[in-house]
Computed example of a mutant assay.
Amino acid sequence: MPRSVNPDTVMLFAAGFGTRMGALTAERPKPLVLVAGRALIDHALDLTAAVGISKTVVNLHYRGQMIRDHLAGRQILFAEEPEILETGGGLKAALPLLGPDPVLTLNSDAIWQGPNPIEALLAAWDPTRMDALMMLIPPKQALGYAGLGDFHMAEGGQLTRGPGAIYGGVQILKTEGLYEINQNAFSLNLLWDQMLSKGRLFGLTYPGAWCDVGNPDGLKLAEDLIGTKDV
């Protein structure tokens, strides 16, 4: 079967312990924490459903069976991790399910207000120039985030490390470089560093608002943000 240059598969990260959520994740995994009456993972899957992604893979570890039960009946594949592998290791371990083509990766702990970030990434993806294209949030549009930012973006979208825009947790990327990383558990930062060294890591600026739901304060901010949406 010929390989595609356009992603039609998404990897949704759902394996972490969610320790910053405190008591909220003592009995449930963070992807099942409710925001405005719906689980975080359902808000994330809404984004993929809206653009017709054909294959969805969810990685699991902490209270993984609860997530399996919650998603029962949906066309979703699961990559169970015997130990926490971090984002890069989790993606590498899931490659047999994901296949060799570029993939979307999506964190399950953010709420977006505005255009669908996946649709925007798909429209801007250019595999001839890019090994990855990530959605970046200007600090003034980010709620629940206290850092200095992750990347500086040049006029053409090419990225370098440094204070500035915030990685929003959704991207398109090629996965071949994962095989060059001789570790089981590692951050996607190692793969991004490969791409940065080749000048092939790119970003796209999100025009709407974004909320990091990493702690209970972020949960309240997310619910307030959803409450401002037009019905």
Results as ranks from 00 to 15, higher is better:
residue 58 V to C: 02
residue 216 P to I: 00
residue 201 L to H: 08
residue 179 Y to H: 14
residue 198 K to L: 13
residue 86 E to F: 12
residue 93 A to D: 00
residue 31 P to L: 07
residue 203 G to T: 05
residue 149 G to P: 02
residue 84 I to P: 00
residue 171 Q to L: 05
residue 212 D to W: 11
residue 164 G to S: 10
residue 106 L to Q: 04
residue 166 I to R: 05
residue 2 P to I: 11
residue 83 E to N: 06
residue 70 H to P: 07
residue 153 M to D: 03
residue 97 L to Y: 09
residue 191 L to T: 08
residue 25 T to N: 07
residue 46 D to P: 01
residue 192 W to K: 06
residue 193 D to N: 15
residue 60 L to N: 01
residue 143 L to C: 05
residue 188 L to A: 02
residue 166 I to S: 06
residue 185 A to E: 09
residue 28 R to N: 08
residue 129 R to F: 04
residue 99 G to A: 10
residue 108 S to Y: 04
residue 35 V to I: 14
residue 58 V to L: 08
residue 88 G to R: 13
residue 111 I to C: 05
residue 193 D to P: 00
residue 193 D to W: 06
residue 142 A to F: 11
residue 167 Y to K: 03
residue 212 D to F: 12
residue 30 K to M: 10
residue 119 E to D: 14
residue 55 K to H: 13
residue 173 L to T: 05
residue 7 P to G: 09
residue 14 A to C: 15
residue 8 D to N: 15
residue 227 G to S: 15
residue 190 L to F: 07
residue 173 L to S: 07
residue 204 L to C: 02
residue 50 A to G: 10
residue 52 G to W: 07
residue 11 M to V: 04
residue 87 T to L: 05
residue 140 K to Q: 14
residue 204 L to K: 06
residue 131 D to R: 12
residue 119 E to T: 04
residue 87 T to F: 00
residue 25 T to A: 04
residue 45 L to K: 03
residue 216 P to E: 13
residue 56 T to Q: 13
residue 78 F to T: 08
residue 116 N to I: 06
residue 145 Y to N: 12
residue 103 V to H: 09
residue 124 A to H: 15
residue 65 Q to C: 01
residue 8 D to F: 03
residue 20 R to E: 14
residue 122 L to G: 02
residue 62 Y to C: 04
residue 48 T to M: 10
residue 113 Q to V: 13
residue 51 V to P: 01
residue 64 G to S: 05
residue 120 A to N: 03
residue 118 I to S: 02
residue 135 M to H: 06
residue 217 D to C: 03
residue 194 Q to K: 14
residue 130 M to C: 12
residue 192 W to A: 08
residue 73 G to R: 14
residue 198 K to F: 10
residue 228 T to D: 12
residue 69 D to G: 05
residue 2 P to C: 02
residue 98 L to W: 01
residue 25 T to W: 00
residue 149 G to I: 08
residue 213 V to D: 00
residue 159 L to T: 00
residue 200 R to M: 01
residue 31 P to I: 10
residue 218 G to V: 09
residue 180 E to L: 11
residue 136 L to I: 05
residue 18 G to I: 05
residue 8 D to K: 09
residue 143 L to A: 06
residue 38 R to Q: 15
residue 228 T to N: 11
residue 30 K to L: 12
residue 80 E to H: 11
residue 8 D to Y: 03
residue 46 D to C: 12
residue 100 P to H: 10
